[in-house]
């Protein structure tokens, strides 16, 4: 009885501010349910390996994944264009991860049949970092990465 409580306290001690905020209700479970799927565990991952775990498995490196419209050096970290294209057959999901952001996962796209495996968006980057493109194709995960240097950070505002 007591040990259970202690474990809960220990777990509580290690959670980050963001998780506390989540617990405090900025992300109400009811709301999330009404909005369809949102992979909370993956979006709260603090490191690339944690994010892989939340998606379900370590990916293999793949040459078939390429970055498009992604700069080597981004002048403004608040708006960094990231484009990912995959030529892997049966690509069903593309996720964009930024290694040194507080939460590494930026976006995850589901690609239905008939939609090309190419998405472009813009992300915020706190500092220079590797950007990972995680692709799920035919049930397996693949990854490619690219370093993007940021001259002006985008997370402090």
């Amino acid at each position: 009885m007591d040990s259970g409580r202690r474990d809960a306290l220990k777990a509580g001690g290690s959670v980050s501010l963001l998780t506390l905020l989540a617990a405090a209700g900025w992300l109400k479970p009811g709301e999330a349910g009404a909005q369809g799927a949102w992979n909370k565990a993956a979006f709260e991952a603090k490191s690339i390996p944690d994010a892989y775990k939340a998606f379900g498995g370590a990916p293999a490196q793949a040459k078939e994944i390429a970055f498009v419209a992604t700069p080597d050096i981004a002048e403004n970290g608040a708006v960094v264009p990231i484009g990912v294209t995959s030529s892997l057959p049966k690509t069903e999901q593309i996720a964009i991860l930024v290694e040194k952001n507080p939460n590494v996962l930026a976006a995850s796209f589901d690609i239905p049949a008939g939609t090309e495996a190419t998405v472009t968006t813009r992300v915020k980057m706190g500092q220079s970092s590797n950007v990972y493109a995680l692709v799920k194709a035919d049930g397996k995960y693949y990854v490619a990465q690219k370093e993007v240097k940021v001259t002006l950070g985008g997370c402090g505002g």
Partner: peptide, 12 residues
Amino acid sequence: VLSAQWGPAIAK
């Protein structure tokens, strides 16, 4: 034709 889940790291 496309569905996405986003985190707060997407730009303004």
